[in-house]
Nucleic acid binder design. Structure first.
Lengths: 210, 210, 210, 210
DNA sequence: CATGAATGAGTGTTCATTCAT
DNA sequence: TATGAATGAACACTCATTCAT
């Protein structure tokens, strides 16, 4: 914990030093607008007005509103994915690791409704999303999960008669749908309970029975 | 089979009698356009051109592009949901019913990439979707699944320590994510195999162990 | 002459009947603007304002300012090229025909400085010009000249030791450069004298000497 | 040969001494961009990027993109015009000189498609071109030709019943149109053949017959 | 029931230009 | 001499929407 705080501060310092103030203002404006409306309804004019910056500057720094969104998403996701690898160290057993990832993911989703809606509902529609850096991050994340599953199979913890990728899709899909009602309808959500329920089913279903 | 044909004919008759030709042409145009591009990129002008109909006419019938889409989606989904209830009759046991639903859903998705993409990726973003008739259909469908799960719990087939809704979300989410790679990346898909893999895990995970 | 007038009236009637008034107003506005400034400096806003028409209408009818220009040019050139074939009938001898074409071309250029400047200086720079209908007309015109030259060679009037195309280029290039000072610097021009001077040189140079 | 090398070195020395490095880099960038796209599509931002120089700097040196272009064109044309006078020395007879000029011009055009396109198609449209130094150079060049023609008339080599200027326009226009297909459509071109063909016609047409 | 014509209001985008450092 | 940052003003283009016929 100490470390993460220290790191955040460090990053913040670096960024505000290296990034031109206009660029920062634009990203902040985008972030605040995303809380109010869906992405596709956000216009350059609005961003510029809130950022108190010229419209042309958005073009200069981001070329495109979509680019700007990806930048914002990246900045949101990056530290999380970075920390994940770190957090998994010291955990023994694939299932235990999986539980950690599941909890972490649900927790991430439940920590910010705006970004969750964007990630689960909006972003996949954008042309070019699957070539974006944001998607690359999501991929990295998915690979980590795949690695855990494969490790589990190797260690005899997880059954070997189902494609690891299928197991991963089931895991991710389950998480998503468990969180969607919260994201869409503002239903209550408790990461601990959801994790518990999912793992009860999932682990029973995927673990190797002798 | 007799029934379905009879029904189709019945519907066709009703439609061609009750629906003005312009309206039909417009919906056909929309359907064909959806195959070529994502919904948000479709304009009234295009629809009118393909339907060989005046722009104003679309406006008269549908008021809103979204309205038109929902009409098209409804027409696509409705017969499927109708059939589902019918198909479940005569199947013994909740898990067997569930397997049938899972297979049917994957099969539905894999039968039409365009509509799958719309349902899984696009439609949830539209403002008003959750008040639409399309969503109502999806809800009906989800309720059927919930009913099956509750029946399973009652009958002692399915464990009772997890909220039925959670089980349903896990089921639906799993299906979706298993089909997404196909919808997005044109990856191959085999409904039988996917159903098998999902049920192996899911049923082991949800069934009541004594 | 009777015929041409009759035809013009006929065309005018047809056009004003078949063309929507907005479209006509836009083309008129374009024509009047071309007299005042070079094409690339003309904006949609100006056209719309002068035509007393909405900007969107330009888009609807022409898609593009360039398209609009081509339409205007076509309407200007078309009758001329149409008449050319007609006018050449009854003239005996390739050189006599060539003289007629040369005079006609210089006369055309000298009859409208605006269009001459556009044709000789501006239009060739536009991307897509060489795929445009305007260029097609120019090509048709050039082909007529080529045909005359080839006829002259066949008849023994014109020397056969030089490529017909080269002779044509020399003819067209000479005409152009003789007219450019008038177009650019408003220098005086006399079609009769220029034709006479060019033919003196050209015919002496290209005619077959025994 | 010695001379030309010496001259080039001389120029290079002068330039690298008198011109600030940024200015040179900018002109190089402009030259390289002209090879890729037409002038009007080139922006300051692009130039600055390629020159690896700040946008503001271009503005400081050239004030106007057009200015920069003229500078580049001047640098391209100047040595050629300089050489022309020199090359004509020692040639006896106006027609022989004219042939030399014609060959040289076609050769110049055919040596660089980019500059030929600019000179024959683009540059004449620019407002201010006819007040530019580039045009001054072209004028100088045209005056040399006019001088040769007048000399030919005086010497009785060239007919005296046509305005010398007309003869010059015919000569220049012929050259241009002979080279245009090459410049525009990348058609093949052979300076020797074209010169031969043009001179065959032109000289026969303009020479004094007794 | 259907159409042709026209509009208003906005959108993303572009670029030359300026200025403090 | 050279740069990074920022701006203003325009521009082409789009589209849902309306209405008289």
């Amino acid at each position: 914990m100490d470390k993460s705080i220290a790191k955040d501060n460090f990053e913040a310092t670096v960024k505000s030093r290296s990034q031109p103030p206009g660029r920062v203002k634009i990203m902040d404006a985008m972030r605040s607008l995303l809380k109010k409306k869906e992405f596709s309804a956000i216009t350059w004019a609005e961003i510029a007005k809130i950022a108190e910056v010229n419209e042309g500057l958005i073009y200069k720094y981001f070329n495109d509103t979509r680019n700007l969104l990806h930048e914002v998403l990246k900045e949101y996701l990056e530290p999380y994915v970075d920390h994940l690898k770190f957090d998994l160290k010291g955990i023994e057993g694939a299932l235990n690791k999986l539980r950690k990832v599941i909890w972490g993911t649900i927790n991430l989703y439940s920590s910010n409704r705006v970004f969750t809606k964007i990630l689960l509902l909006e972003v996949r529609n954008f042309p070019g999303y699957f070539q974006s850096e944001t998607y690359q991050l999501v991929q990295d994340y998915a690979k980590i999960i795949l690695g855990i599953i494969e490790e589990g199979i190797r260690r005899g913890e997880i059954r070997d008669d189902i494609l690891p990728k299928n197991i991963r899709e089931i895991t991710l899909g389950s998480i998503e749908h468990l969180c969607l009602p919260w994201a869409i309808f503002n239903k209550d959500i408790d990461p601990d309970v959801l994790t518990e329920n999912l793992c009860k089913i999932l682990f029973e279903g995927i673990k190797k029975h002798d």
